[in-house]
């Protein structure tokens, strides 16, 4: 049966339920959130309809600027670490046997599906004084005394790289599977070492994929809402953490909504960049 335009009104029937669900429970909530971002906050966690820019005006404070700057810096660092680690890994993975690939993919998916709560808990245990990695170092005689490695910036970064690494591999995977193997073969035949072939042939051929992946992992890391809170100090909090904090603990919904709208705009801008990077990739 060929694809054809809908003939009569009844042909649209299958669309009814999905369209209604997505409109009522995604478009409307999204709109509600935007509306609330202009509302006036009242005492005691309530808010009243209004059209004020107060919530957006708070962005102009030095504190908010600091949080935004740190969020972007952290997400960029995570994205770079992940791509640097995942690119050679994924490249080698795509050149392995199918069975090995499937085992690694199942493991990566299992970790990717873990809740941030669980990842945060696992790393805070691993970095703790009583159960942490330092105990192993003490047992090996490398360190004299066990100590806590969290809260710290290093702990936040490690936790977030752990969370984003499987995602990075899964984003890179399809592009690397499709990479023409004769490219590296040619380089090898012409006498390049495997490492040289990787850096002079594979990496340049994937320039656009790498750019797109960096942006996607950046967005992913920007969404991390719990790890900075569980593994870091208050100065390591990101925009996502601050939104959660304002919404739940400070009961300032309008301000939380304004920050969320801002985060959406940043994300959409980045998605647009990814699409442009992707287009260039197709043209090249």
């Amino acid at each position: 049966m060929r694809r054809e335009p809908p003939q009569k009104l009844g042909d649209y029937a299958p669309l009814l339920f999905p369209a209604a669900m997505l409109t009522i429970f995604f478009v409307v909530p999204f709109g509600t959130m935007i509306a609330v971002s202009f509302f006036q906050r009242l005492q005691g966690g309530f808010y009243t309809p209004a059209f004020v820019f107060d919530n957006y005006a708070r962005f102009l404070s030095a504190f908010f600027g600091g949080v935004l700057g740190f969020s972007l810096f952290l997400a960029i660092t995570v994205a770079i670490c992940c791509v640097v680690l995942a690119l050679p890994f994924t490249y080698m993975l795509t050149r392995m046997g199918r069975k090995v690939q499937v085992v690694w993919l199942v493991a990566l998916l299992s970790i990717l599906s873990l809740s941030e709560v669980i990842i945060g808990f696992a790393w805070s245990t691993l970095f703790s004084r009583t159960a942490g990695i330092t105990n192993i170092l003490v047992a090996l005689g490398i360190m004299s005394e066990a100590k806590a490695l969290t809260p710290s910036f290093g702990a936040v970064l490690t936790g977030m790289v752990y969370q984003a690494f499987p995602y990075t591999v899964l984003v890179l995977f399809p592009a690397l599977v499709r990479l023409d193997p004769t490219l590296t073969e040619a380089a090898r035949t012409l006498g390049a070492s495997p490492l040289k072939a990787f850096f002079t042939v594979v990496v340049p051929a994937l320039r656009n994929t790498i750019t797109a992946t960096l942006i996607m992992v950046f967005i992913f890391a920007l969404g991390s809402y719990l790890l900075p809170q569980l593994l870091g100090r208050p100065q390591h909090w990101t925009l996502s953490v601050l939104i959660t904090d304002q919404a739940i603990y400070q009961s300032n919904m309008p301000f939380a909504a304004a920050m969320a709208v801002f985060l959406v705009l940043v994300t959409l801008g980045l998605v647009a960049l990814t699409v442009i990077a992707g287009r260039k990739g197709e043209a090249a």
């Binding site: 509600t32 959660t244 985060l263």
Partner: peptide
């Protein structure tokens, strides 16, 4: 989108 946005919406 970052999950916190869907959650807040």
């Amino acid at each position: 989108l970052p999950p916190v946005i869907t959650a807040l919406g």
